[in-house]
Design a protein around this nucleic acid. Structure first.
Lengths: 243, 243
DNA sequence: CTACCAATCTGGTATGACCAGATTGGTATA
DNA sequence: TATACCAATCTGGTCATACCAGATTGGTAG
């Protein structure tokens, strides 16, 4: 799914810029240092800085005004959803509130997705889900990590809703938590429990049982988040909820 | 809100690249021409191409493998949600299915947002909404367009849900349709009707009346989409649903 | 105190060069 | 003929410079 790959200078510049914004507590509308200053502040070429700024622009975080300067367009917490994935990939931490909101949003969105899936899923969707569960199962049997397979399965359920926008919305919420997912699924017990849930998901979707499916989402997601939260509290210092 | 601003070479390169992918019907995993080839194909510098590719990478549309090539990571319809905004800004058309999904997703997300807003809104939220409606009203009175104010109001309602992720999810769905919104609100009749709805929204949120609020969202959004659809069918050729 | 202008700064873009790993096509070998 | 191997080539990653023209600004003349 997503390979590790060492950070390029461009990515590094994205990270440094975000850190700069955070560190200096820049507010919406504030001006950033010029490209030339950022480039020697970060020790990279202006090209790399410009690449980074193009990304931040795309995420609606910054705005470059020709012949004038670079301005903060949104607070970090209000930029594009896809920035969550980028932040996670750069090992930038999320604040507690974001974590809470992501958790809640995922339950809401996925509940709706699965309701629609129950109502509209095709036989092809069902077959695909069964294939994925079979594969999942064999990996659990083989004591392999199933972090990727879990994402694949949940997105496939979302896809069965026949609404691509919902899938595109859920995707970043999954990808941003990829590193926890990796840890979470390192436990064989959790893998087995998760497999059982997935099998039940398929059953409810097959039966078009919206009510049961919705309830299952709540349980499944909440238990996962609780577990991750517990792991996080046990392992690392507060305020750093990434990786 | 979002100024027109003529496209930079970087933006142009993003557009050209997306068009290239569309035109050649590239599939997930397919390889794109090298940066050097793209740059002289588009008539811009490699720097500009690289800036564009950085953006497409951020949207998870492409993947650059060092010393190897550029590969399509997702179909255009599966890339990051924020790409919708970029596509709209570049006047790239959306297909019918995307339009339908966006419409549905917006109703779903906004319905949930307003339900949460009813349950959790603070007095400050309520005051802000009232301010926005007052401003909206005076603009309607003055026969001014309220495209920006409409987005502002809907996002403020979403913000009253106390969940920033929901706001960040709805934002691109609003921004991608900014140009239609502009046309839509060019009609004084529609502006008045919309104002009445907004006033009712505030009332329901003030009363914490989830049921009425949810029903109102359905009506409000659906009528808007129907209107836009009718306008689109009347004015332009099929398959081009942007601008 | 105000109006105005020139030096300076800023983003946008273009050239060109070098690195090192990935790719590939042809050659020599079994 | 099939295979193993190696060197030329291609590719993304990065750096260094240079120019343009509009925005900004500080100081000067009125």
């Amino acid at each position: 799914m997503s390979v590790p790959q060492q950070a390029s200078e461009g990515s590094r510049a994205v990270k440094r810029t975000i850190e700069f914004i955070r560190h200096h507590r820049l507010q919406k509308g504030d001006r950033l240092p010029s490209e030339r200053e950022l480039s020697d502040r970060f020790g990279v070429t202006r090209s790399s800085v410009r690449e980074a700024l193009a990304v931040l622009d795309a995420l609606r975080l910054t705005e470059r005004r020709p012949k004038s300067g670079i301005f903060l367009r949104n607070a970090l917490e209000d930029s594009g959803l896809d920035s969550l994935v980028i932040q996670a990939n750069l090992d930038l931490p999320f604040d507690e509130r974001t974590m809470r909101d992501v958790s809640e949003a995922r339950v809401i969105f996925e509940t709706h997705a699965i309701r629609l899936a129950c109502a509209r899923r095709t036989d092809a969707d069902l077959n695909r889900l069964r294939e994925l569960v079979a594969n999942y199962s064999s990996r659990v049997q083989a004591e392999l990590n199933v972090a990727n397979e879990d994402v694949e399965f949940h997105l496939a359920m979302a896809a069965a809703s026949q609404n691509a926008i919902i899938v595109r919305t859920l995707t970043p919420l999954f990808l941003m938590s990829f590193q926890w997912r990796q840890k979470y699924f390192s436990s064989p017990v959790i893998r087995r429990r998760s497999l059982a849930d997935h099998q039940e998901f398929v059953a409810t979707i097959a039966d078009r049982d919206e009510t049961r499916a919705a309830a299952l989402v709540q349980k499944h997601v909440h238990s996962a988040f609780d577990e991750v939260r517990a792991m996080a509290e046990g392992n690392e210092q507060p305020e750093s909820h990434n990786q």
